[in-house]
Design a protein around this nucleic acid. Sequence first.
DNA 1: GATTCGTGGTT
DNA 2: TAACCAAGAAT
Length: 365
Amino acid sequence: MAAKSKTDHRPVAPALLRWYDKHARVLPWRSRPGEHADPYAVWLSEIMLQQTTVATVGKYFRDFMQRWPTVEQLAAAPIDDVMKRWAGLGYYSRARNLHACAVMVAHDYNGQFPDDEAALQKLPGIGPYTAAAITAIAFGKRATVIDGNVDRVVTRLFAIEMPLPLSKPEIRAQAETLTPDKRAGDFAQAMMDLGATICTPKSPSCNRCPLTEVCDAYAQGIADTLPRRAPKKPRPVRHGACFFVTRPDGAVLLRKRVAKGLLGGMMEVPTTPWLDAAAEDYSEFAPLKAKWKKRMGLVEHTFTHFHLILTVFVGAAGAKEAAKAGGVWTAQDELAGEALPSLMRKVVALAMPDEGPLFSKQSKK
DNA sequence: GATTCGTGGTT
DNA sequence: TAACCAAGAAT
């Protein structure tokens, strides 16, 4: 049979909204029925939720909302404070864009987020998904919100067999036909809830799904095989070393990474370049002269596109030598509050194995 | 259009 | 346990 045409209107939204009214998840950033949505809270949560799970975002969202309850207060905060509070969430350019966006909204928009997709998308860190989500959820205007959940749900509803990301235009075209004029925000959140709890990637719970009557993939018995994806490239392994050095007063030497690129703007235990093979001798990269002792074991960390294996050296520097080193000497009891990404918390945990759960819980090895 | 950006939970 | 992948954006 022929594929459904783009004008095919299935009664998806009514059935899904009925399901949502009954089963909507209670989430920290989700306003209760009847309550006015706070565009600032919607925006903040959507930025945090980019490629990040609901469970992980929860405590970060509450911390940010308590510390900076309004966009003006966030805009007035030092960027380094924002980076510290973002540490561990990943994709650190989001934190820089978050602050830049807050400044623009506070200064150029009088503290009020614009309420249309085009204007929102001009702001740093706001792309097609986030602009649509804010438009629909915060302002109640019609917008088609497409995230990974929607990709999956729509692919199955219409049994789209073309693999992602080639099927993106088709998914968008079909999703546009589903978006209702009213309650577009609830509809978007319902699609995402459905994808997160029922229409899951591996073993979808079609027996509990409110949309089986209008789902092509279900009718064909292929829901669990969709969406197809282009094969992924292998993840290369890179190697390097870190130098954990203390001063006579116990302070530890940290450095700030350059603002752009991997872990941009975050702090680090001074590290060598990360190369394809482990080096015999890393001493040329040491931040200062010291008697370096290699820690037993390795720090391993998987990034999106490569796996990293780090050797950790520990050393003690004299006051005179320490004064010549570039970087920031940081008291040990302040390390946990620094803008250290998870990789560097693993390094600290290996270097200071007796320093308790603040860091040791970050490392499973 | 393809890459580059983190991290942790799930299967 | 290794693979998968999550409320994507920027370049």
